[in-house]
Design a protein around this nucleic acid. Structure first.
Length: 887
RNA sequence: GGAACAUUAGCUCAGUUGGUUUAGAGCAUUACUUUGACAGAGUAGGGGUCACUGGUUCGAGUCCAGUAUGUUCCACCA
C-alpha cells in the first residue's frame, strides 16, 4: 500500500469521526462493566468554541477515551446551558436589529422568539466539539430547559420551599440596570476605577430650628456618587469624633431639594476617611441600608430599574445615573455646596454578563438559605470523599463554604425557569408545581375558592438549574431511581475552570447530597486559564483569542490537542502560543515517517531468510523496547492517576521520538535495500501498535489512521481496543535496560569521537573493548558495530596503540581507524572529563571525611556515598590511563 | 485590608517523605553533520550562586521564619 507523504488530517478526521459514530462507539448503556461517567460542563447555548473549551474538552476526551480503552463503560454526556442572562441579551439584540422592542412583546411572544433563536443557533458549539474529536454520547445530549429538566427544577424549588430552605425577602441586591435584573454576589466583578471623591457641604439646622447659612459653616460629607444625595436619609458621624459629636441629634438639609435629615451617631463611621461624616442612603448602598435599619431611617429610592432617576429623586428625573452625576455637581457648585473634588481610585462592581456598573438596590427577591444545605458538601471535600486537583482549591472551597451567604435565585428575565409562585390580588402567594395545584393550595391555606392568580414574572438563576446537572442528565429527579441514574451516578471526573468553583461546583455538591444522597463526582480537575504569551487572559476585546476552527482546519485537530495539552502544566495557567501547535504537527510528522519506514520493510519482508540475509542476529532490540514500553506505561499510569496529563503526554512523546524512532527503529533497521525477516517485522508492528494504543486518547485521529495502515485487517478499531493490562514493569527488564543504556552511551561516545577526530561515517573503524562486564558487551556488540560502522569488535586486556580512547561507564574502548588521528582533540575531551570527575571525587570525599556525617546519616546513605566515591575513583583511573596512553 | 499559591536555564515547567552524582526535561538558541523514513532530520555544546535574608540540620532547591515580586480568591471605608 502506498502511504502518502504526509498525514492528510482533513480526510482522516472526517472519515474516522463518522466511522466511530456509525459504530456507536461513544454510545453507552448500562451493563455489567464498571461505569466511567463524565458530564460536560454545559457551555452556554449561545457559545462559540474558544481556547478554554478546547483545553477543557480535550482533557475530558483523554480521560474518557482512556477509560474506554481500559475496560470501563465510558459515558460522556454532552449538553448546553440555557444561560438566562447571556441568551436573553442576545435575543433582545436580535429583536432590536429587526426593529422589535422587548417591551412591546408579551412573555409568550418573546419566548417563542427565544426558542426560535435557540433552535437556529443554539448548540453550534456541540457541533464544534465533534471537530475536536470529542467522544461524547450524542444520544444523551441534554439542555437545561428540556421539558423534563424544567419540571425537575420546578420540583426542586417546591421541595426546598417546602423544607423552609427557600424564602422571599426584601434585601439589598446587586442590580444590573442594563439587563434589568438582580444578580447574585458571584456575578459581580469588582474592578479598580479612577473616580472622584466629592466633598459636599450640607446646611445645619440649629437648636431653634433655624437653618444656618452656609457661610456660617455646615457639615461636609464625602461621596463618589453625588447623585445619591437625593436619596439621603441621614448623616452619620462617629460618636467619639470631637469634631461632630455635638451635632448628633440635630438636623441637616439635603442640598437642592431641602429635605431635613437627622444627624446620627454610629460607630461604623471611620473618623480618618473623607471628612469623617457619612451620608446615609439606605436605598442605594449595602452598608447604609444596614445603618438605616438600625436607626429606623426612611428609604428613598431615587433610581428606576434602568438606572435613570425616579420621581422620588425630585430632581433630574429620567436622566441616566451617570448623566445625573455630572449635572448635579454643576448644580451643587452653583449653589456653593462643593468644598473640593479629589481624584480617587476605588473598586466598583460590574455585572459579569453585561459589564455595566451594578447598582445596590433594595428589592423583593427569592433566596436559598445556604447554611441549610451546605454541611455535607463541606465535609465531603474536607474528608477527601471528593478530591480536588490541584488540592490547593480545597482551602478556597472551605473558606467559601464556611462563610456562605444566602443565594439570590430570582432574575428579572423571561428566558429561564419561571418561578413557581402564584399571587392573588392581595399579595398572598403559594408555591406549587403548577397553577392548578396553586389554586388548591390557595383554597386550603386562605380559604379562597377559584382565586384569580398570577404567576411570578421572574425566572430562576441559571445555576439553579445547572446545579442539578450531574444527575438530571440521567433524569435522577424527573424519573427517580431509574436504571441510568442508578448506574452512572455518581460520576467520576469533573473537568472545569476554577472561576466557577462557587457558582457551580460547590452547588452541585450540595444538590448531589440533598437529592441523591451521594456526592456528584469523585474527582474535580480544575484547568488553568488560557492566556497569551504576555500572560493576558484570552478575550474577544483584546483580539488575542485565536479562531479554533480555523486552526483545526489549518493544522489538524490532533496537533491542536497536542499543542494545548503540552503547554498545560497541571493546575497552572497556560501561556499558549500558536507555536505549540507546530510541535504537535512535527510530532505527527515524525510518527508518520516511522510508519513510512515500516511500510518499506513490510514490502520487502520475507518469511524465510537465508543466514546471509538475516538482518538481525537476535531479538535483543525487541526485548529492550518491550522493557522500555513497560516502564513508560507504568509511569504514564501513575501520572494519569494524578491528573498530570501534560506530563503523561511528554513521557509518551519522548518514548516515541527517542526510544522508538531514534534508537529502536535504527537498531532493527536492515541494511540498505535488504529485506527484513517476518518475525522481526511482526515484533516491530506489535510494538508500534502498542504505542499507538497509548497515544490514542491524546491524538485520536492520526493514531486510528496509522493503526489501520499498519495492518490492513485489524480485528477491532483502535478507538475501542483494550489496553494490555499485563504491560507492567518486570524485574527481569532491568538487565536489558542496563544493556540498552550501555549501548546508547557507547554509540553516542563513538559518534562524538568520530566527529571530533574527523573520521567520516563511511570509513569503517575497528573497536576494542576492555571491560569486566563482558556479557553486557556481548549482548550489544553486533548492534554497536552496525550503528557506528565498525568492521570488527573484540575484547582486549591491553591498551591498543594509535587508537582513540574512550571511557564508557566502567569500560574502556579503543577506536582504530585508517585515518591519521588528531590526538589533541581527544586529549582535550579526556582531560575535561577527568577534571569533572576529580571535582566530583573531592566533593564526595569531603562529605565522607566529615565525621558528623558518617555518624548521623543513615547507613544506606553513607554506603551510597562510598559507592559514588569508588565509581569516581575507577573512572579517574581509567581516564588517567587513557591520557597516558595517548603520548 | 485578609488569605492562598507561586518564584528553578532565554521561554514553559519537573524535581515524590531533606542525602542517586557538581540540579533535570521540552521548546528556543549555537556549531557541526547529512543522498536510503523524517532539513518539519541527526549529533554535540552553551546557558541556572534553585527570588532575597536569616534559621534548623552532619547535610537544604526541598523544612521553618521574615522580606520582595507576581497571580488568584475573599472583603470593601463612603
Amino acid at each position: 500500500m502506498e502511504i502518502s507523504k504526509n498525514f492528510d488530517f482533513k480526510s482522516a478526521e472526517a472519515k474516522w469521526y463518522a466511522h466511530w459514530l456509525e459504530n456507536k462507539y461513544f454510545e453507552s448503556t448500562p451493563d455489567e462493566r464498571e461505569p466511567y461517567t463524565v458530564v460536560i460542563p454545559p457551555p452556554n447555548v449561545t457559545g462559540i468554541l474558544h481556547m478554554g473549551h478546547c483545553l477543557n474538552n480535550t482533557i475530558q476526551d483523554i480521560l474518557v477515551r482512556r477509560a474506554r480503552m481500559m475496560g470501563k463503560n465510558a459515558c460522556w454526556v454532552p449538553g448546553t446551558d440555557h444561560a438566562s442572562i447571556a441568551t436573553e441579551a442576545k435575543v433582545v439584540q436580535m429583536l432590536r436589529e429587526r426593529g422589535i422592542q422587548k417591551a412591546s412583546l408579551s412573555r409568550e411572544e418573546f419566548l417563542s422568539y427565544a426558542w426560535e433563536w435557540k433552535e437556529k443557533y443554539g448548540g453550534i458549539i456541540l457541533q464544534q466539539l465533534k471537530k475536536l474529536g470529542c467522544s461524547l454520547d450524542w444520544n444523551r445530549t441534554s439542555f437545561t430547559m428540556d421539558a423534563d429538566y424544567y419540571k425537575s427544577v420546578i420540583h426542586v424549588f417546591n421541595d426546598l420551599y417546602g423544607k423552609g430552605y427557600i424564602y422571599r425577602g426584601k434585601r439589598m441586591i446587586n442590580w444590573d440596570p442594563k439587563a434589568k435584573t438582580a444578580l447574585s454576589d458571584e456575578e459581580v466583578i469588582f474592578k479598580e476605577v479612577q473616580g472622584k471623591l466629592y466633598f459636599l457641604q450640607y446646611q445645619i439646622v440649629d437648636n431653634q430650628g433655624q437653618v444656618v447659612p452656609l457661610s456660617e459653616g455646615g457639615i461636609t460629607i464625602a461621596t463618589v456618587r453625588p447623585e445619591t444625595i437625593l436619596g439621603d436619609a441621614a448623616i452619620a458621624v462617629n460618636p467619639s469624633d470631637d469634631r461632630y459629636k455635638h451635632l448628633i441629634g440635630s438636623y441637616a438639609i439635603v442640598p437642592l431639594i431641602d429635605r431635613k435629615i437627622p444627624i446620627i451617631g454610629d460607630e461604623y463611621v471611620a473618623t480618618d476617611f473623607g471628612s469623617g461624616a457619612l451620608k446615609i442612603t439606605p436605598a442605594h448602598d449595602m452598608n447604609d441600608n444596614q445603618i438605616g435599619i438600625k436607626h429606623g431611617l426612611q428609604v428613598v429610592d431615587i433610581l428606576n430599574e434602568d438606572g435613570t432617576l425616579s420621581s422620588d429623586a425630585q430632581l433630574l428625573i429620567g436622566k441616566d445615573r451617570f448623566e445625573a452625576r455630572k449635572e448635579i455637581i454643576q448644580l451643587l457648585q452653583e449653589a456653593g455646596h462643593v468644598v473640593k473634588i479629589e481624584d480617587y481610585i476605588h473598586q466598583v462592581g460590574f455585572s459579569e454578563r453585561t459589564d455595566v456598573v451594578v447598582e445596590p438596590r433594595l428589592s423583593l427577591q427569592w433566596w436559598v438559605d445556604m447554611k441549610k444545605i451546605s454541611g455535607p458538601a463541606l465535609t465531603a471535600v474536607q474528608d477527601g470523599e471528593i478530591n480536588f486537583h490541584p488540592a490547593k482549591f480545597k482551602n478556597l472551597y472551605r473558606h467559601w463554604m464556611e462563610n456562605i451567604k444566602d443565594w439570590c435565585i430570582s432574575r428579572q428575565l423571561w428566558w429561564g425557569h419561571q418561578i413557581p409562585a402564584w399571587y392573588d390580588g392581595e399579595g398572598r402567594f403559594v408555591v406549587a408545581m403548577n397553577e392548578e395545584e396553586a389554586k388548591e393550595k390557595f383554597s386550603k391555606e386562605f380559604n379562597v375558592i377559584d382565586p384569580q392568580l398570577k404567576q411570578d414574572e421572574d425566572c430562576l438563576d441559571t445555576w439553579f438549574s445547572s446545579w442539578l446537572w450531574p444527575f438530571e442528565v440521567f433524569k435522577g429527579i424527573s424519573n427517580p431511581g431509574n436504571k441510568d441514574v442508578a448506574y452512572y451516578y455518581p460520576t467520576q471526573s469533573l473537568v472545569t475552570a476554577p472561576e466557577i468553583i462557587f457558582f457551580w461546583v460547590a452547588r452541585m455538591v450540595m444538590a448531589g447530597y440533598e437529592y441523591m444522597g451521594k456526592k456528584p463526582f469523585s474527582d474535580v480537575y480544575f484547568t488553568g486559564i488560557v492566556r497569551d504569551t504576555q500572560g493576558r487572559k484570552m478575550s474577544k476585546q483584546l483580539g488575542n483569542s485565536p479562531d479554533l476552527l480555523e486552526m483545526i482546519d489549518e493544522i489538524g485537530a490532533d496537533a491542536v490537542r497536542f499543542g494545548i495539552l503540552i503547554a498545560s502544566p497541571a493546575g497552572n495557567d497556560l501561556l499558549w502560543d500558536k507555536s505549540s501547535n507546530e510541535q504537535g504537527r512535527n510530532f505527527i510528522n515524525k510518527l508518520w515517517n516511522a510508519l513510512k519506514l515500516i511500510q518499506i520493510w513490510k514490502e520487502r519482508a520475507k518469511p524465510n531468510l537465508t543466514s546471509e540475509e538475516v538482518s538481525l542476529a537476535s531479538d535483543w532490540p525487541h526485548q529492550w523496547f518491550d522493557a522500555r514500553l513497560r516502564a513508560a506505561s507504568s509511569e504514564i499510569d501513575v501520572l494519569m492517576a494524578q491528573y498530570k496529563l501534560s506530563e503523561a503526554l511528554k513521557t509518551l512523546y519522548s518514548l516515541i521520538w527517542d526510544d522508538f524512532c531514534s534508537w529502536y527503529l535504527e537498531w532493527v533497521k536492515p541494511g540498505f535495500e535488504k529485506p527484513m525477516d517476518q518475525v522481526h517485522l511482526d515484533s516491530v508492528l506489535n510494538n508500534f501498535e502498542l504505542l499507538l494504543e497509548r497515544l490514542h486518547p491524546f491524538m485520536p485521529f492520526v493514531t486510528e489512521e496509522m493503526y489501520h495502515l499498519l495492518r490492513t485487517s485489524q480485528p477491532i478499531d483502535l478507538c475501542v481496543r483494550q489496553l494490555d493490562a499485563a504491560l507492567q514493569p518486570r524485574e527481569l527488564d532491568e538487565k536489558v535496560l542496563n544493556e540498552g543504556e550501555l549501548l546508547k552511551a557507547s554509540i553516542t561516545a563513538i559518534r562524538d569521537a568520530r566527529v571530533k577526530s574527523q573520521i567520516k561515517n563511511k570509513d569503517a573503524v575497528t573497536l576494542y573493548c576492555s571491560s569486566l562486564e563482558r556479557t553486557s558487551w556481548e549482548a550489544i556488540q553486533q548492534l554497536l558495530s552496525k550503528q557506528v560502522n565498525a568492521s570488527d569488535f573484540s575484547f582486549t586486556d591491553e591498551p591498543i596503540a594509535n587508537t582513540i580512547q574512550l571511557v564508557v561507564g566502567s569500560s574502556k574502548m579503543y577506536i582504530k581507524s585508517e585515518q591519521v588521528l588528531d590526538t589533541s582533540a581527544q586529549r582535550k575531551t579526556l582531560e575535561e572529563e577527568l577534571k569533572y570527575y576529580e571535582g566530583f571525587f573531592a566533593s564526595v570525599e569531603k562529605k565522607l571525611s566529615n565525621e558528623k556525617f558518617v555518624q548521623n546519616a543513615k547507613l544506606e546513605v553513607v554506603e551510597m556515598e562510598k559507592k559514588k566515591l569508588n565509581d569516581a575513583l575507577q573512572k579517574i583511573t581509567l581516564l588517567k590511563e587513557s591520557i597516558a596512553n595517548l603520548s
